[in-house]
Design a protein around this nucleic acid. Structure first.
Lengths: 240, 240
DNA sequence: TCAATACATTTTCTCGAGATTTTTTCAGAA
DNA sequence: TTCTGAAAAAATCTCGAGAAAATGTATTGA
């Protein structure tokens, strides 16, 4: 897709090296909660599980530090980044700050190609939400992907690579929280209506309204997590 | 200093592993322009220069990808992140967005300890600027450190680790631009007056005024870089 | 002269083993 | 019983050599 890889995650497209492959698999497993928050990541064990050498796995773990999904502590190895309510609140509010600004710029600068892509990705998301409403649980994974694609399409016309880069990292973080906490719950809010409202006001170039709804949309997830049992974060999330 | 290393750069304090040591030295050299933007970073050559093994240097380079000071391209090795006017403009504007918000929160939430630290770091910066005004060029390095410390002290009371984290990365980036382009030039603007204005309005809890001046302060550097010769960025900066 | 293919060199990527460091275990003393 | 400290175990960090890939060069044919 793009070759100027200044600010794209190292292995955005398809992995060409073993490090990138291991990085992708590890990232997925961490976001999906296979490796619980705070869990120690022992190279000796993981290298067999992911079928790579020790050095290779180390490099993959180092790349995950970039995304703040893994923390490395001096001479004491690696650990899955811990979670906390305070951290999620921080992530959410910073996301609001960046994503609303990005959307504002996107609406101002977006051309027809951007609009077309946005329409397409909203359509794909709507279909997934339709299936989800019919209690077709198998499409949850697909919904996650399309939800992410929709949020990225909204701000795709924002000219700031840095804002998009930071947004990407924060979205990834919030996805981890969402999956760990709400994975199995049927989605209670009428998310589709929220998406539609964001979509329509964006297409209408109503930046004030669009950013306002997007802001509430993101913040609502925070309320949902706040309603989790109080001991949820101390226990490090729900294991599989 | 802090042990909860969730969002701190891996080797913030003193390096305890060879990887961190090499990472620190490499980062300094890139920021200071020893390795020019776009330059290819060959592991085989650099491992002798930095006196570590090949694998170790690879890991250090991977860590630098975190800071977006190095880009890795699939199977084609590492490169110093390129520079461009567009990128610097992006960095600067994003910095304004984050740093003003951080300052606003800092002013709201800051306690007496924060104020005391701020007074101290402003004092240290003032002394350095005094020496600089007396054409004592040897203190430029010290001024860089204290300028950074002052900007960090301003937002130290901002409760958002993520905003501070992103600000840290962006400051590092802009430092690279500033050093590559303006290192030898005597600083033309009356930066001390700007710093003093920011400092005083912050202490007075005048968030509107403080963020406004900070905003202009950061943007002024952009104007300075814009006045560089047009072929500056295509040539990849001024080598030593 | 130019283009295309094949070869040779360089560089990156990968792996396993040795050296340090951290963590755990366990015996002995207070 | 509880604490201390040393030895054992485990894990991390580091390094150099071999395999895979990319780049550069030369040769061949049109």
């Amino acid at each position: 897709m793009n070759d100027t890889a200044t600010l794209t995650t190292p292995a955005a497209a398809e992995p060409k090296t073993l490090v990138e492959a291991a990085y992708n698999r590890l990232r997925r497993d961490i976001i999906e909660g296979v490796h619980a928050p705070g869990e120690k990541l022992r190279v000796e064990h993981l290298k067999d599980q992911y079928e790579v050498g020790a050095g290779t796995l180390r490099e993959a773990l180092l790349l995950l530090v970039t995304d703040a999904l893994v923390v490395s502590q001096g001479q004491r190895g690696f650990r899955v980044a811990p979670i906390s309510l305070a951290d999620f609140e921080d992530i959410t509010r910073t996301r609001v700050l960046l994503e609303t600004e990005a959307l504002r710029q996107s609406i101002t600068r977006g051309d027809e190609a951007w609009e077309a892509d946005l329409v397409a990705s909203f359509h794909r998301l709507s279909r997934a939400e339709q299936k989800l409403a019919e209690h077709d649980v198998s499409t949850t994974e697909e919904w996650e992907m399309r939800n992410r694609a929709f949020h990225e399409a909204l701000i795709a016309a924002c000219p700031s690579r840095w804002i998009r880069h930071f947004q990407h990292i924060l979205y990834q973080q919030s996805e981890r929280y969402r999956r760990i906490s709400l994975f199995r719950q049927p989605i209670p809010r009428d998310i589709h209506a929220e998406h539609q409202a964001i979509f329509e006001s964006t297409l209408a170039h109503d930046a004030t309204r669009a950013t306002s709804i997007l802001s509430e949309h993101i913040l609502r997830t925070l309320d949902a997590v706040k309603r989790m049992p109080p001991d949820f974060f101390t226990k490090g999330g729900t294991p599989r």
